[in-house]
């Protein structure tokens, strides 16, 4: 199994990467850790003319910290987050989610920015980062902009990125000390892509109460105000007030209508809420 022949470039900086992506004569694809694109190339499902390897760009492997957020460079790996080589501003949430992604050998290469840009609806970051209100920092011909994760993915494998836009970092909001979070995914086998997933963040100090239903073969379904999901209660026992009908209605509205899949996803959400309460 061999991919089609392609050219390969490893630029030193973001400007170099954007210049290569701007070439109109060839089909260009950015490559980060390559853990999703590699299989597609090997199966010849993706056939670019030029791969632009982003992993040589030092700026994409940096972390920046402010009082209310952490900016994780796009080429930082799941294993970096799992092992704590990135500061923790989420009460351990990012490390726990990173630990559950695929397998260690994959996490050693796979990157947070690459995973988002690939936009597989069943991937972990797409769902969890939407739940915590993270932002995608993008550089392109139009300068620098930040897009909320929930608006970044537009469909299966599709995002708001223009052909010469590059994800440079992910902005993670800092949780309050009493924030509670939960993330549950249903997989047939450990490490596989989920067939249902859900995430919840309950951070009363910051007045954040969000829930997300993921792995819906489309953009994740976001409940930006999840209060109704718990009958407007707050605190450590919100799981007891969980109203699955609210989740069902959100799925209906999003066009995710298969009744069996709706139930499976509602159970995933309930388990995420239970996790949040147990923390």
């Amino acid at each position: 199994m061999k991919p089609v022949a392609f050219d390969y470039e490893r630029p030193q900086d973001i400007a170099g990467a954007l210049a290569l992506a701007g070439r109109a004569d060839v089909a260009v694809k950015f490559l980060a850790g390559g853990q999703s694109l590699g299989p597609m190339l090997n199966l010849r499902l993706a056939q670019p003319d030029l791969l632009v390897d982003l992993t040589g760009i030092a700026e994409l492997k940096q972390v920046g910290e402010t009082t209310d957020a952490l900016e994780i460079g796009a080429c930082i790996t799941h294993a970096d987050i799992e092992d704590g080589r990135v500061p923790d501003v989420t009460n351990g949430a990012l490390a726990a989610v990173a630990h559950g992604i695929a397998y260690r050998a994959v996490r050693n290469r796979g990157t947070i920015g690459g995973s988002l840009a690939h936009a597989d609806p069943a991937a972990d970051w797409v769902t969890f980062l939407a739940a915590i209100g993270a932002g995608v920092v993008i550089r392109g011909s139009g300068g620098r902009r930040v897009v909320p994760v929930e608006e970044f993915m537009t469909g299966v494998f599709e995002t708001v990125l223009a052909p010469n836009d590059l994800v440079t970092a992910i902005r993670i909001p800092r949780f309050s000390a009493d924030a509670r979070w939960g993330y549950y995914k249903a997989c047939r086998k450990t490490g596989e892509f989920a067939y249902a997933s859900a995430a919840v963040l309950h951070d009363p100090t910051r007045s954040v109460n969000r829930a997300v239903i993921g792995a819906v073969e489309a953009r994740p379904i976001v409940l930006a105000d999840a209060g109704e999901l718990f009958g407007r209660r707050t605190g450590a026992d919100i799981a007891a007030s969980f109203v699955p009908q609210v989740a069902m209605r959100a799925m209906d509205t999003a066009g995710f209508k298969n009744p069996i899949e709706q139930k499976v996803h509602a159970v995933a959400l309930r388990r995420a809420v239970e996790q949040a309460c147990a923390r």
Binding site: Q12, V26, G56, L60, K61, C75, T77, N108
Partner: peptide, 24 residues
Amino acid sequence: IGPIGSRRAVATASPVPSAPAADR
């Protein structure tokens, strides 16, 4: 930090670009 095996890139001469997808 970053993908295992990745190093900081250094400037190199660009290889000759090959034929675009349509020809191939």
